[in-house]
Amino acid sequence: MLKLVGILGLLVVAAAAYIRLAPSDPARWHVPLTFDADQDSKYGVQRVVQTGPDGLARLDALIGKPPLAGSVAEGHATYVVRTPFWGFPDYVTAQQDGDRLRIFSRLRFGRSDLGVNGRRVEQWLAVLKAG
Results as ranks from 00 to 15, higher is better:
residue 56 L to V: 01
residue 100 R to S: 14
residue 86 W to N: 11
residue 52 G to D: 04
residue 61 A to K: 12
residue 33 L to E: 11
residue 115 G to F: 04
residue 20 R to T: 08
residue 35 F to Q: 03
residue 63 I to K: 00
residue 49 V to W: 11
residue 51 T to N: 02
residue 95 Q to S: 00
residue 17 A to D: 08
residue 82 R to H: 07
residue 108 R to P: 08
residue 67 P to E: 07
residue 61 A to Y: 03
residue 27 A to F: 09
residue 45 V to K: 03
residue 32 P to Y: 10
residue 118 G to K: 13
residue 26 P to E: 02
residue 24 S to C: 07
residue 116 V to D: 06
residue 93 T to A: 01
residue 16 A to V: 15
residue 92 V to S: 03
residue 19 I to C: 08
residue 46 Q to E: 15
residue 80 V to Y: 03
residue 1 M to Y: 00
residue 78 T to F: 09
residue 110 G to A: 12
residue 124 W to N: 00
residue 72 V to Q: 05
residue 5 V to Y: 10
residue 7 I to Q: 08
residue 16 A to K: 15
residue 102 R to H: 12
residue 94 A to I: 06
residue 126 A to C: 02
residue 32 P to Q: 04
residue 15 A to E: 15
residue 131 G to T: 12
residue 47 R to T: 03
residue 111 R to W: 13
residue 123 Q to H: 07
residue 97 D to Y: 03
residue 56 L to F: 02
residue 59 L to C: 01
residue 71 S to L: 02
residue 23 P to K: 05
residue 76 H to F: 01
residue 66 P to R: 03
residue 128 L to T: 05
residue 31 V to P: 03
residue 40 D to V: 11
residue 102 R to T: 07
residue 29 W to S: 03
residue 14 A to W: 13
residue 64 G to P: 03
residue 126 A to M: 06
residue 51 T to A: 00
residue 87 G to D: 06
residue 108 R to E: 05
residue 100 R to K: 10
residue 107 L to V: 00
residue 64 G to K: 04
residue 53 P to G: 11
residue 40 D to E: 10
residue 17 A to R: 12
residue 5 V to I: 14
residue 2 L to A: 03
residue 43 Y to T: 12
residue 87 G to V: 06
residue 129 K to S: 12
residue 44 G to N: 01
residue 6 G to D: 11
residue 96 Q to S: 01
residue 33 L to N: 08
residue 22 A to G: 10
residue 130 A to S: 15
residue 77 A to G: 08
residue 13 V to P: 10
residue 24 S to A: 14
residue 85 F to I: 15
residue 24 S to I: 12
residue 114 L to D: 06
residue 3 K to T: 13
residue 71 S to G: 13
residue 19 I to W: 14
residue 21 L to I: 08
residue 63 I to W: 08
residue 25 D to E: 09
residue 88 F to K: 09
residue 55 G to Y: 02
residue 50 Q to K: 09
residue 77 A to N: 06
residue 8 L to G: 10
residue 25 D to F: 01
residue 50 Q to L: 13
residue 66 P to C: 02
residue 34 T to H: 06
residue 95 Q to C: 02
residue 16 A to Y: 13
residue 127 V to P: 00
residue 65 K to C: 01
residue 112 S to L: 06
residue 67 P to F: 05
residue 35 F to E: 02
residue 26 P to M: 01
residue 16 A to N: 10
residue 54 D to N: 06
residue 129 K to N: 14
residue 4 L to Q: 07
residue 101 L to W: 08
residue 101 L to R: 00
residue 42 K to H: 07
residue 17 A to H: 12
residue 72 V to M: 07
residue 31 V to N: 11
residue 1 M to H: 04
residue 107 L to Y: 05
residue 72 V to F: 07
residue 4 L to K: 12
residue 122 E to K: 09
residue 99 D to E: 10
residue 80 V to A: 02
residue 118 G to L: 01
residue 82 R to E: 00
residue 95 Q to N: 05
residue 61 A to D: 10
residue 24 S to E: 11
residue 7 I to D: 04
residue 11 L to K: 04
residue 22 A to P: 13
residue 58 R to L: 00
residue 104 F to Y: 15
residue 76 H to L: 06
